[in-house]
Structures are given as structure tokens and as C-alpha cells.
Design a protein around this nucleic acid. Structure first.
Lengths: 227, 227
DNA sequence: TAGATTGTTAATCGATTAACAATC
DNA sequence: TAGATTGTTAATCGATTAACAATC
């Protein structure tokens, strides 16, 4: 039986590592911009705000191989991370809920900068449906299935109020969307083949509040002593 | 020595648990809205999308006590979570970077709904400084220290491009801000007393891309067999 | 060769889960 | 009492960290 030095390309990457891959991409682009050709785990760690041990571990389980004494070949590494993040797959995007936030997301350069392409906009408010935003006519979310037929869109962003999120989510799933990013503060029920990530901006502020409250509590005894 | 049944109010809550507290708050409000008086760990788990074991563990380390056979007193529980999240502390807020996204955040009802109050807006673009958004005149971020004097603002939201984020962050810290939520895809350097949470929306989409790529890879062999 | 840096191991830490005795 | 549900334990799992032999 021959040796198998090849890495299983389908091997599982731990969730925590996957969460850091986009940071590595960002850092690699920054380093490439200043002309770097090769990058060490220490440089990448510095640029992405993690430890070098973590970088090496993450890249190892991605199947990436660096060169001892040298580092990682930047272009190759970038391609490997791209591949892991499914660059080759659907990068078409829809945004649902064209209020303040949805409007901003529709025009957000950060999406296109990183390879996503806005293909449709939806809302349910008759005042909004039919208007043009970011060069696209807003359609009724209840028509999502027909509207998305043939567009090869598998990613949806929900920017509706919490009360509408589940309905909108159901429409997207029915239209073939399998990846959902929701900014609505609500728990979404989806079939098992659909992945949801939820970002709750107000919750982020509340979490910061916890740390702030703790700092204050810790500081207080010292203040009393100082009196 | 007397028994000490009292819970140490300053005890550390694990980071993962803190991250769930806002979800519990949301769920409790929903349950209160339908007239619930008492809530079991199972109900709260269902409403917030976690397991009941996790709920009980999180609440226990918060110092909260339920009643066996009954559940948790809703109003009391809500007050305890509020207290942990520092409801009593500074809820004043500033937004920096009044582009598309910053504009939307300035008008985002989700912040005020959950107790945060917008007190100032900043940008650095002369075209934007001086305009009125959400009832506030946009000021130059380089004047943040003076502008925030006396406003009791300790939380800042950064919605600038990545290239401006560190500068803006430095200005906020100099102005007394100790909690920062940044939407800019950049690593921020801050002094140890400042807490930063970073939300990168494009990164969220990329992470979803990983899961999608894996689903496709897993599905392929089955398809080949079916041929 | 000497210096640098990887890949990997082992130790530690933190989080989740399941189960159940305690008790309302 | 009987049914329900907590609080807590122990087991498991996953993530991080530090260290260093391998090796470019």
C-alpha cells in the first residue's frame, strides 16, 4: 500500500478556525498590498490579531503547507483559504427588508469588495416594492421563488424587523436560498440543510455593557481605598 | 462562622454565557408580552434557541435562583440580567462614519428599543460634517474629545471604511469611550481598559460560504452514485 | 552551518451536554 | 402525594496555548 501524504480535502475544519479564515484573507490582502511574497505565521498572526500557534494550527487543518524556516507562500495560501470558503460557489446575494439598514446593505461596498454580487432586493411594503435601490427594482418577497429562478442565488441577507423575519426566511428558503445572514433580533427556524448566522447589533452593545459594568465594579473598591 | 448562602455578585460569568444574555432578554420580553408570569428553563430555551441545560447553567452563574417545580419569576429574572449587562451604566452612544451604514445605524430603532441613546455623530469628510442626521449635527471626529465632554458617552460605534477605523478609534478612546463596536473590517489596537467587539458582515457571508461548500462536497458523491 | 520557522504534541482551559437527586 | 423543574455533578467535547523537534 503506497504512502498517502495527500491531505483529505474534505476534512472538517473546526468552527472556531473557520471563523478566523476571513480575517486571514483580509490580512493576506493587506500584506500582499505591501509587496510581501511569503508570510510567516507570526506576521499573519500580528496582522489578523490572533496568536501564531493558532495560525499554524488553523492552516494545518486546512491542509496548507508552509516551508520551515521560510513561511507560507502568500498567493498559494490565499487560494487555499478561498477554496475552503467556497469561492467557486454561488456568490449571488439578495437583501430582504429595504428599510434604513437594508438600503445601506444594498449599497455596502464591503460585499462586492469581497466577491459577493447583489442580484435582487425584496420587501413586502407596497410603498417600497417597485422603487429602485442600488440599481435594482425592489420586488415583493412573496414572489421571491419566481424572481430568483435562474439567478443562482443561494445567500440571503435579512434586514427586516424581527416580527417579519420568520416569514421572510421561509420565502427565501422556498426560493432555494441555503445560507442566511440575519440582522433581525429573532430566532429563525429553518430546515437542516439551511445555515443561518445571526448578527444582533444591539446585543453586541449589551455584551459590551457587561464588561463595562465589571470594570466599574472592579474599580470601585480601589476608589474607596483612595478616599 | 455563619453560613454564606449569598451569591458573590461580582463573580465572573463565562464569556459564552454573557453572549447569550441578550438572547434571554429578548425571549423574556416576548414571553412577557404573551402574559407569562413565570418561565421554565425549557420555555426560555425554546424561545432563545439554546438548550435548557445551558439556560439553567447560565442563570445559575448569574446568581439567579428559580423555584424547583415552578421555574423562574420573569420580572425578577429580567432585572437580574439587566443588572449583569450594566443597565444602570452609561447607555449613551455615538456613531462615527456617517456613510450609508452609519446613516442607517444612526436611525436604527433597535438601539433605542434596547435602551441605548444616540448622543452624537462624527465623520471626517467636510462634505458630511455639519449636515444633520437623525436630528443631530455631524461633527468632526477630531473634535470628539471636546464634543463628548459632559455627555457621559462611553460607547462608540465605528462605521467607517477599514482605512479610517484605527484613527477614529484613537479619537474615541481619547474622548473617554471605553466600549467600541466596530463594523469596519480591521484589527483595532486599543489600551487594555477598552473593550472592542467587531462585526464583519462580509466575513459572515464568507463563513456561510464554507458551510455551503461543504454541503455541496458532501452531496456530490451521492449524486455520482445516483448516475 | 546557523538561523528561522513550521508542524505537531501534550497540557490546559473553557463550554456543552446529559443525567438525576433535591425539592417546590 | 405526585408531577414538575431546578441546581449541580460528571463526562465529554472542542479550543487554546506553549513548547520543541524537525527541517528548510
Amino acid at each position: 500500500m503506497p504512502a498517502r501524504p495527500e491531505v483529505d480535502p474534505g476534512r472538517r475544519v473546526p468552527a472556531a478556525a473557520v471563523g478566523r479564515l476571513p480575517r486571514y484573507l483580509r490580512a493576506l490582502d493587506d500584506l500582499a498590498a505591501v509587496g510581501a511574497d511569503t508570510v510567516s505565521s507570526h506576521e499573519l498572526a500580528e496582522a489578523s490579531g490572533v496568536t501564531s500557534s493558532q495560525v499554524r494550527k488553523d492552516l494545518a487543518c486546512l491542509g496548507s503547507r508552509g516551508t520551515r524556516g521560510v513561511g507560507y507562500e502568500l498567493v498559494l495560501l490565499r487560494a487555499e483559504i478561498d477554496a475552503a470558503l467556497g469561492l467557486a460557489h454561488g456568490r449571488g446575494l439578495v437583501v430582504v427588508g429595504i428599510g434604513n439598514l437594508g438600503h445601506a446593505l444594498a449599497g455596502y461596498p464591503g460585499f462586492s469588495d469581497r466577491g459577493f454580487e447583489l442580484r435582487a432586493l425584496f420587501d413586502h411594503d407596497p410603498e417600497v416594492v417597485g422603487t429602485t435601490v442600488a440599481g435594482l427594482v425592489v420586488q415583493d418577497v412573496d414572489d421571491a421563488a419566481e424572481a430568483l429562478a435562474g439567478l443562482d442565488v443561494t445567500v440571503g441577507v435579512i434586514a427586516t424587523p424581527a416580527s417579519a423575519a420568520q416569514h421572510v426566511c421561509d420565502r427565501l428558503v422556498a426560493a432555494g436560498v441555503v445560507s442566511i445572514l440575519t440582522l433581525a433580533p429573532a430566532v429563525l427556524a429553518v430546515p437542516p440543510h439551511v445555515h443561518v448566522r445571526s448578527v444582533d447589533l444591539a446585543a453586541e452593545l449589551q455584551i459590551l455593557g457587561y464588561h463595562q459594568a465589571r470594570s466599574v465594579r472592579r474599580a470601585e473598591p480601589a476608589l474607596e481605598v483612595a478616599r
